[in-house]
Amino acid sequence: MGFSNYLIGILNFATIVLSLPIIGGGIWLATKHDTDCVRFLQWPIVLIGLFILLVSIVGFVGACFRISCLLCVYLLVMLMLILLLLFFTVFAFVVTHSGAGHALAGQGFKEYRLGDYSTWLQNKVDNAENWRSIKSCLSDAKVCNSLNEEYSSLQAFSRARLSPLQSGCCKPPTACGYSFVNPTSWVNPTIPSANQDCLLWNNQDLCFNCGSCRAGVLQNIKEDWHKVAILNVVVLIFLFAVYSIGCCACRNARRDGSFSGFGKPFL
Rank of each mutant, 00 (worst) to 15 (best):
K142G: 07
S153M: 12
G62F: 03
C72E: 02
F93M: 04
R66A: 07
G59K: 10
K135L: 06
S118N: 14
L86S: 14
V58T: 04
S163R: 03
V55L: 13
N127G: 11
Y151T: 12
N145H: 13
T89N: 05
S118A: 03
A103F: 10
A63Q: 02
A128M: 04
F157Q: 10
Q166I: 01
S133M: 10
K171N: 09
A128Y: 09
E129L: 15
G108P: 05
C72Y: 11
I82N: 07
L84D: 05
A156F: 03
R159G: 08
R132V: 04
K110W: 01
V95P: 02
V90T: 04
G115L: 10
F60R: 09
C72G: 14
D116N: 10
A100S: 13
A63V: 10
C69V: 13
E149S: 15
Y74I: 00
Q107S: 12
L54T: 15
G99T: 07
V73P: 06
L79V: 11
L54C: 11
C170S: 04
G62C: 02
T174E: 12
A175L: 14
S118K: 03
L53Y: 14
M78T: 12
A92R: 03
P172K: 01
K110R: 15
V90A: 06
Q166M: 07
F109C: 02
Y117I: 09
V90I: 12
M80W: 09
I82W: 13
F109W: 15
L147S: 05
A100R: 11
R159D: 14
F88T: 06
N127L: 03
L76A: 14
S118E: 08
F93N: 01
A141Q: 08
V77I: 13
G106H: 10
T89S: 11
L50Y: 04
C144E: 12
R161H: 14
L162N: 11
